Amino acid sequence: MFLAKVTGNVVATQKVASMTGHKLLTVEPYRVDETRRDRLVPTGRTFVVVDTLGAGVDDFVLICQGSSARLTPETAKLPIDAVVIGLVDTVDVGGSVVYQR
């Protein structure tokens, strides 16, 4: 599981039938800044994820990746590798809030 920021939407008009109607997003993973530990910084990677919770651009989300992405009731039969499993309200590191929605 990791923290990521939603950076955009993906539209695919041609896809396998089981994916019809599922919202796709691009996300960029974030991590705690190793030097200052008082902020989140991007990792420079991008993932496409399935969103069943209604996240939007610039939201921070929790992502589950790998076979675990298919363990939610909504994604059990989908050919996916990453899914939004939570919308982040606050990130607290060592007693300091580094993100608040």
Rank of each mutant, 00 (worst) to 15 (best):
M1A: 09
M1T: 10
F2H: 08
A4T: 00
V6H: 01
T7D: 01
G8A: 05
G8I: 06
V10Q: 00
V10K: 00
V11L: 05
V11C: 02
A12H: 02
A12S: 07
Q14W: 05
H22K: 03
H22S: 00
K23G: 02
L24P: 02
L25A: 00
T26L: 10
V27A: 01
V27I: 10
V27M: 07
V27N: 05
E28R: 03
E28C: 04
E28A: 04
R31D: 12
D33E: 07
E34K: 13
T35Y: 09
T35F: 12
R36M: 11
R37T: 14
R37H: 10
R37Y: 08
R37F: 07
R39A: 13
R39C: 13
V41A: 10
V41W: 11
P42S: 13
P42K: 14
T43D: 10
R45C: 03
T46N: 14
F47I: 08
F47G: 09
V50I: 14
T52L: 10
L53F: 14
G54L: 15
G54Q: 14
G54A: 15
A55S: 15
A55L: 11
G56D: 14
V57I: 14
D59F: 15
V61T: 06
V61Y: 09
I63F: 07
I63E: 12
Q65P: 07
S67N: 07
A69N: 07
A69P: 05
R70G: 02
T72F: 09
T72Q: 15
P73L: 03
E74C: 01
E74K: 01
P79Y: 01
I80L: 04
I80C: 00
I80E: 02
A82R: 04
V83E: 05
V84W: 06
V84M: 06
G86C: 04
G86V: 09
L87A: 08
L87H: 13
L87E: 06
D89W: 15
V91Y: 02
D92T: 13
D92C: 12
V93P: 08
V93A: 13
G94Q: 10
G95W: 11
G95V: 07
S96Q: 14
V97D: 09
V97Y: 10
Q100G: 14
R101C: 05
